[in-house]
Design a protein around this nucleic acid. Structure first.
Lengths: 205, 205, 205, 205
DNA sequence: AATGAATGAGTTTTCATTCAT
DNA sequence: AATGAATGAAAACTCATTCAT
């Protein structure tokens, strides 16, 4: 005989999470106040603590939620690719799209969580690994199919790819001109595949 | 007729900057207090405000100082390289070394400054451009010499290179095993040059 | 036609009281939360307020209950003593034993209730008087029997006796070594009877 | 070249201490708020933390200050007594007077400090020992002079004496009728000396 | 009758910055 | 010039109590 239905609790939980996502994204973690989040969710300050341990845990849930969504999306999209190159291109495009669409949440992750001393081993670290695992799988499959050299270090690929997109997107996001995702994704994929050095161009693509 | 000689003022200024660099690096921006920095510089809280507008400006000066140092270092080192590949390798190595040696300052830049809404057009942004300009120059020269394809987008190279190193270093820095800079720099340079795709291996290096 | 039988209500009431006694004793009044007490009683927070006005009233009931128990015990034990000295000794022993056995409840009384501005005239004050009345009766009987001087001020005796035990027990309770109740009770009784001054020792005991 | 004179700092310190003494005495520790104390001292909230570590430390200083005062007073007064009985009487009178004059501070000590788990070994515990030491010394001297039996347990005397006064004063303080200190001190001293048991009255005094 | 979600006031503490000395 | 005392706003978190369900 609960005072409110579990359904309503679920709605509440999600309302708080949505409000926190909005406020954290807008202001950053420390500039966002619990009062502000509570107001955004149209509830009292205290109630937040019935649903979340503390402000930090709320941030973690926000990012966990976000990560779960993008992991599902990415895996689904990538699975449509047939070849190594195709899958790589999809991943680059999708990751870039995510970064552009949710820059503020990405920033939260980069500045507030990934940087924290307790990041390693945390739930979000796990999610991050699951996310990047999608790429590692692509590379492994590529090696298995003979599409990429067997001595390739997948972790190096991962860092290059995600690092590049992070930097790239950053610039466009905080800057003036919007990012032309399809075009840049194509260029980046090509460069990843072929490198900078000059060689017989017929070897490309 | 100043009450304190310009010379002594200069020493003061640098003492404060050094203290702030140390404290910011150790604790991060918001956890560092003005009082702590003042104590580290063996002066009073109030005096800091005679030399710096406010805490934020102090952070900016700290990073400006840091950037000026690493820019000079990088340009000098890179100029020793003869070929495109050599220069690229030097830059990768040097940047990686800097990231490892001064992770805390890099973190400050990444989390506190690059992320700020007023970053674009700021003095530090300018310095960052000067820093990355070193790479753009390398690429341009490479194109001019026919060492790299003329249709290469230098900005894409820049993002891939710096993004990759940032990611790479981050992991090693917050992780357990130290970064083997020479080895990883070599691998990364190779991958940048040659890409992921399979091709005649004799073409490499 | 009550929705719940009076019998069941009684059981509930006592369950809450027992839970509150435990939690208050363990944590102290303000550190104990209603939620914790409710959980200890396996009921909901709100239900407590159907049985008790508020947290304060709950504390009062806890101590009332406690006092009723110890008053009954004390009176029964003391009535077994034949002489003034015997009865005095029993009372000293029993009070000390109570203090040792239920230090936390005694502390609650001393720090939370006796100290309150509304103590005088409260129900617990009445109970405290009934408790100390046991001693006053002993003294009065002693005077009537000629076992103690007629000009003895029974209230002075009361304060000395209970004050001494409180102090004594406190030290042992919060300290290291446990209280050897029989031995100390004997010494205290003797000192109460004979005082500090030197006199013919054969007169003692 | 301090911003304000050490003298003024001393005044400030004492103003805060005085304000805290007043507010704590009036409201008790937890009901007293830092804001209230700051207002009573006509300063800002924050400044309190320049002079005292935290609220708890402020309480400790309040009681330390109080204890130092009463210890000095007591020792001075007691030293005027010639005989054991005289000194005992002085101590009883003085302690009672203190308790009556500063009941609220005594309550703070009894309820907030003596009861705390970290009391043993604390600075205030040390002061309390110094205070009660005055009595132990009286008893020891009494034994040395043959004024009291050599087998007397001084700690029992201490507990009886201080416990009795605590109880006694408590009643009068929170009650209606004021305590007639000289009369009650006399009675208490006599009772301590001679005990309750009937005996040859010529032996008394 | 019973629940427990919801409230919202209340409090300690920190700290960048200012300004009297 | 230099000090550091003083400010005062800000913010997370707790919890007794209520009341819709």
């Amino acid at each position: 005989m609960p005072a409110i239905s579990p359904q309503r609790m679920r709605v509440r939980y999600e309302a708080i999470l949505a409000a926190a996502t909005r406020v954290f994204a807008e202001k950053g973690y420390s500039a966002a106040s619990i009062t502000e989040i509570a107001q955004a969710a149209s509830i009292s300050d205290g109630l937040i603590y019935k649903y979340f341990e503390n402000k930090r845990a709320l941030l973690e849930q926000v990012l966990t939620h976000f990560y779960e969504r993008v992991i599902a999306d990415l895996a689904a999209k990538v699975s449509a690719g047939k070849t190594f190159e195709e899958r790589l291109h999809i991943l680059v495009s999708e990751h870039m799209r995510t970064f552009v669409a949710d820059t503020d949440l990405c920033r939260l992750f980069i500045c507030e969580v990934r940087t924290a001393s307790d990041y390693r081993g945390s739930a979000i670290h796990q999610l991050n690994r699951r996310y990047t695992q999608v790429l590692l799988k692509i590379v492994d499959d590529g090696i298995a199919n003979g599409e990429v050299p067997a001595d390739l270090d997948p972790r190096l690929v991962r860092d290059m790819l995600f690092g590049a997109i992070e930097h790239l997107s950053w610039r466009h996001v905080s800057g003036s001109q919007p990012l032309d995702v399809p075009r840049i994704a194509r260029s980046l994929t090509d460069m990843l595949l072929n490198g900078l050095a000059i060689r017989k161009r017929k070897a490309r693509r």
